[in-house]
Amino acid sequence: MLYAMSTVLILAETEAEEGSNIGLVLPDPYELVAGIIAFAIVFFFVWKWAFPAINRSLESRQQAISGQLKEAETAKLEAQSLLDDYRAQLATAKSEADRIVEEARAQGDAVRADLVSKSEAEASQIVAKARVDAANEKARALQEARQEVADLSIDLAEKVVGENLDRAAQHGLIERYLADLERMA
């Protein structure tokens, strides 16, 4: 086939040299050979060098991108877990604070109740003591009044009778009388 083709070409070439323009639309054999060699160089360079080279760089780019995506994913997960941690800590802190406030309130209440009860007890003690004191004073005053009345009665009776009376006997008498009066009253 190639032989037939080159024959045609050579024929065309001779024809062209004779002044016809058919040579313009037929391939020039020398240019054909040059074109075949030149294209073969390009083809083998593309096939054996350029494609492997571009494949390598595309692959490394793909790896770099997927590596970066993975890194980003890990970073995101890390950030998420950190956020969760912080949220949990915050929640704990808040409940702790609530608990402390609640405790303080309870303590305050207890202290107040304690104080109130103590002061109530003290007050009632004071009142009771005052009451006892008053009663004692009253009894003493009564006793003194009774003594005074007896003495006055004896003095009066001595003045009336004109002589000294047996004080002890008279005291007993008056005491009895006053006791009777108290009983009657």
Binding site: L24, V25, L26, P27, D28, E31, L32, A34, I36, F39
Partner: peptide, 11 residues
């Protein structure tokens, strides 16, 4: 160079 038939014909 493609205005010569060699390369178009070859390819």
């Amino acid at each position: 160079i493609t205005a010569r038939m060699a390369i178009p014909a070859f390819l």
